[in-house]
Design a protein around this nucleic acid. Structure first.
Lengths: 336, 336
DNA sequence: TTGAAAGCGTTACCAC
DNA sequence: GTGGTAACGCTTTCAA
């Protein structure tokens, strides 16, 4: 394994000079620079990232704490992060949270620049104390799809998204509109679904339709669970004519359940989702689109910026736009 | 930031002793062990991974080189890897390859234990010279869904998979069976699709149906491209009655195209995919199932094993089973 | 069983 | 401009 001093010896210079060349210091003569550069080439030398990290006090690594495969949307966001990191000198370390203990473990150990130089936390609001400890450790944090104090946040207005979806259904003449989403007290603390539900409730109240508790169902973020919840809804006497699902994944479960019992979507049941994941296009799903990949990319850019400036990033809230995408799973309600 | 010598001083011992306690050396008296342990607790000390890595010559990190979001199947595999790493002391570093330059760059720089202690390479057969260089650097490699010499391989028999799918269609009475898959000369060197195509060709020849070059179409691994290719197929006078798509993602594009022109799947056109991704269940897609998450998990376990033994892992080929899953996109061909 | 000290490969400061 | 030399925080001999 060839080290910096091998290069230095061979080139007839000091290790410091090689380091300066490596790091583009202007205080190197053109002659030595080229000599060092050719020697590096000859020896096939590459700096040891570990040693650089130890010496510099940082490790050229960005951590992403993410409920990885729980949400299809997380994957799309991750793609955005990855794309934004391309060309930067940062490696992407994945901290996959499938369970609250993972999150707590990560949050407890990622408090220093030796594990990750910066952190993106997705969809899980970190406990304020943990967040503060991380920031105190000099690790900048960006939150995506979650809110927290003192750090940049990339988010969408989920309440408004809930309104958009519900208004669409109301405008189509639906009066019995159900909601299927995550439980408000879900273990990882996701709040998006609950906020969308709030928008749903607001619009129903405003439209004078009121909220029927029987039409609001909660379960884990999962196609099959949504399928089951839909069966419950459709079993009732006074069943809904439309369902607003808090995510596309759940909406697909709703459609599946409806079709399984011979109902036509959208004739017998309108379904609207949220996210506009890749699959929504295929399924012809009407949904509220949020720019998932873009949210990841923006989060990564904010983090890189903070890292570049070595300053704490501005704790701005970056709100990404939502947009209703009408496809073919919603239709006007024609009274029986 | 509290270091090992802070702990040592406070506990009234040498740094070496603290290190021994940390690493579970038996050569520590019970008394000092507990004293050190409590001091660590008091100070909230955590070892610096960078320093450990530099000293030990490894970094407690596993790299996964993956054509990340090009294939839905990669995400499922990644989930398996992540799950298998849970509880191990390794961090997961993602090397997302969206372009051949990425792959070459990673393969060139991952040759030492300072970037990753071990490597999983997915779906992309590494150039033998690159692979050898990595192994020479003491970095164990496991290949998933790709083959290579001298390293453990986790794979499926894609030729047989192609046979399974095609035999199913032949058994249903189809005679004009199309194939849609990746181009054999695709930039990242994926071969699975080409092998599945080989199985397809074999079965058609064996059945005396012959292979009509017009019915074989290649394009990038993408729903929309498959959609377009399907349109080409369906525009022809003597159009196919069934399509074997080399992946579920592509199969969904086929179905989309067929339905867009008013064809009924499976009555007018049977479609079979490959992989059995999560979405296939929703879409009711008949497909050849391969255990994706399990492949990732197995690959990770093999790598951990190799790392544990500090020996080069046995260059075994682990072949995972394939299974035909009949759902509702294939049906018998009833002659017009 | 333990402490002291020599690395591990870089960076960065300080003289020259 | 450049070389020498402390760090950086840990592991691991080597003696004792």
């Amino acid at each position: 394994m060839v080290t910096i001093s091998d290069v230095a010896t061979r080139a007839g210079v000091g290790a410091g000079t090689v380091s300066r060349v490596l790091n583009g210091s202007p205080r190197v003569s053109e002659a030595t620079r080229t000599k060092v550069l050719t020697t590096i080439e000859e020896l096939g030398y590459r700096p040891n990232p570990l040693a650089q990290g130890l010496s510099r006090g940082r490790c050229q690594t960005l951590g992403v704490v993410v409920p990885f495969f729980t949400h299809a949307s997380a994957v799309e966001r991750l793609r955005g992060v990855s794309a934004a990191l391309d060309g930067s000198r940062y490696d992407l370390v994945l901290f996959d949270v499938e369970h609250p203990v993972h999150r707590d473990e990560f949050l407890a150990t990622l408090t220093r620049r030796d594990r990750a130089d910066g952190l993106i936390i997705m969809s899980m609001p970190p406990p304020p104390a943990d967040l503060q400890r991380i920031l105190d450790g000099g690790v900048p944090v960006v939150l995506i799809d979650a809110v927290g104090d003192g750090v940049p946040v990339v988010r969408t207005d989920d309440v408004e998204g809930g309104r958009l979806a519900t208004r669409h259904l109301v405008a189509l003449g639906h009066q019995r509109i159900a909601f299927i989403g995550d439980a408000p007290d879900n273990p990882l603390g996701f709040v998006s679904s609950t906020e969308r539900e709030r928008g749903y409730r607001e619009v129903l109240e405003a439209a004078g339709l009121g909220v029927d508790g029987q039409l609001v169902r909660h379960g884990s973020h999962d196609r099959e669970v949504a399928h089951r919840l839909t069966n419950e809804l459709l079993d009732s006497i006074d069943r809904p004519t439309a369902v607003f699902a808090a995510s596309d994944v759940q909406a697909l479960g709703v459609i599946e359940a409806a079709r399984a019992r011979g109902l036509d979507v959208p004739v017998d049941l309108s379904v609207i989702g949220f996210d506009d994941i890749e699959l929504a296009v295929y399924a012809g799903l009407t949904t509220v689109r949020q720019p998932l990949a873009e949210s990841g990319a923006l989060g990564a850019r904010l983090l890189l910026e903070a890292l570049r400036g070595e300053a704490a990033p501005a704790a701005d809230v970056h709100e990404l736009p939502l947009e209703l995408v009408e496809r073919s799973t919603t239709a006007p309600w024609t009274r029986p």
